[in-house]
Measured scan of single mutants.
Amino acid sequence: AQASVVANQLIPINTRLTLVMMRSEVVTPVGIPAEDIPALVSMQVNRAVPLGTTLMPDMVKGYA
């Protein structure tokens, strides 16, 4: 199954992502693919992302 990017902590709005904030997990619905984690580093989220939330393309500025 495809692993997705999941928030490893609460990520406040406009925060630049770092590796420690993200983990890969097989979840439904599928979000951003886990292999994109390196590309997500330093991108900003456009909303607060609670712990355990799957990151979707529309949550990350410049990803989609």
Rank of each mutant, 00 (worst) to 15 (best):
G31F: 02
V5Q: 01
S42K: 12
L55W: 01
P12N: 11
V6P: 01
M56L: 10
Q9T: 13
M22A: 00
S24N: 07
V27H: 04
I32G: 02
A1M: 11
K61F: 15
M56E: 11
L40W: 02
V41Y: 05
V27S: 07
L10S: 14
L40F: 00
V26C: 05
P29I: 05
V20G: 13
G31Q: 02
I32L: 05
N14Q: 09
T28K: 07
T15F: 07
N14K: 06
G31M: 02
P57W: 06
N8Q: 11
S4V: 02
V49W: 02
A3E: 08
Q2E: 08
T15N: 05
P29V: 08
S42N: 09
M56G: 05
A1Y: 13
I13E: 08
Q9E: 13
G62T: 07
V30G: 09
A1D: 09
I13M: 09
S42E: 10
A1E: 06
A7N: 00
Q9A: 14
N46I: 14
M43G: 04
I11H: 00
A64V: 14
E35K: 15
R16A: 15
A48Q: 11
V60K: 01
A48W: 09
M59P: 00
T54D: 00
N8C: 04
V60W: 01
T15S: 12
P12L: 09
V41T: 10
D36A: 14
L19I: 10
N46H: 08
S4F: 02
Q9V: 11
V20A: 14
V49Q: 02
P33L: 14
S4L: 01
R23E: 04
V20N: 12
N46W: 08
N8D: 11
T28H: 15
N8I: 09
P50K: 09
K61R: 13
D36I: 08
N46Y: 09
V49C: 04
M43A: 11
V30S: 14
V49F: 03
V41K: 06
N46G: 06
N14Y: 08
L51A: 12
P50C: 04
M59K: 01
P38M: 12
S24A: 15
M22T: 02
P12M: 06
L10D: 11
P29F: 04
A3W: 07
A48P: 08
P50T: 12
G31P: 01
A64T: 15
D36V: 09
M22W: 02
A3T: 07
P57F: 09
P33A: 11
T28D: 12
E35F: 14
A39G: 08
G62R: 06
P50Q: 09
A34H: 07
P38I: 08
V30H: 10
G62M: 06
P33Y: 07
P57Y: 08
P29H: 04
M59Y: 09
R16V: 15
V26L: 12
V45C: 03
S42H: 09
A39K: 15
T18Y: 04
R23F: 04
Q2L: 12
M43T: 06
V45L: 07
A34P: 08
S4C: 03
S4N: 02
A48E: 15
V60M: 05
Q44R: 13
L40H: 00
A34I: 07
I37W: 03
D58Q: 12
M43D: 04
G62F: 10
V27K: 06
E25T: 08
A3D: 07
E25A: 13
Y63I: 05
V41F: 05
A34M: 09
M21E: 02
N14F: 14
R16S: 12
Q44H: 12
A3K: 07
V5H: 02
T53P: 01
V45T: 09
N46L: 11
M21W: 03
N8Y: 04
I37K: 08
G52T: 02
V45Y: 00
D36Y: 12
I37V: 09
S24V: 11
K61S: 15
V45G: 02
M21I: 03
V30D: 06
T54C: 04
S4D: 00
Q2M: 07
L40I: 15
A1N: 12
V45P: 02
G62W: 08
D36P: 00
P33M: 07
A34V: 10
S42R: 08
R47F: 08
N8W: 04
R23K: 15
L51D: 14
I13T: 14
R23I: 07
V20D: 14
Y63E: 05
L55E: 00
R16Y: 14
Y63A: 05
V60D: 01
M22F: 06
G52S: 09
P50M: 14
I37C: 04
M56S: 08
N8F: 04
A7S: 12
V26K: 10
P57L: 06
S24I: 10
V5P: 00
G62L: 08
L51P: 11
I13P: 10
M21P: 01
T28A: 12
V49D: 02
M21Q: 04
A7G: 03
G62V: 06
G52R: 04
V60H: 00
Q2G: 12
V49P: 02
V45D: 02
P50F: 07
V27W: 03
P33K: 13
M59I: 05
T15L: 05
V26F: 07
L51Q: 14
T53N: 13
P33D: 07
V30Y: 14
V45E: 01
T15D: 05
G52D: 09
A3C: 05
M59H: 12
T18W: 03
R23Y: 06
V60Y: 01
S4I: 01
Q2W: 12
V45H: 00
V27F: 02
I32P: 00
D58A: 13
L55G: 00
L55D: 01
S24K: 12
I11V: 09
T15I: 05
T53E: 13
M56Q: 15
A48D: 15
A7K: 01
M22D: 01
I32V: 11
P38C: 04
L19G: 07
Q2K: 13
A48S: 13
A1L: 15
Y63N: 04
Q9F: 10
T54Y: 02
Q44M: 14
V27P: 01
V49N: 01
P38Q: 11
L19A: 12
A1C: 06
R16I: 11
L17H: 00
N14H: 13
P29E: 07
R47Y: 12
A64H: 12
N14E: 09
M21S: 05
V30C: 04
P50V: 11
V60T: 02
S24Q: 09
P33R: 14
S24W: 06
V6C: 03
P12K: 10
P50S: 12
L17P: 02
A39H: 12
D36E: 15
M43S: 08
T28E: 11
M59E: 03
S42L: 08
N14G: 14
Y63F: 06
S24R: 12
I32F: 03
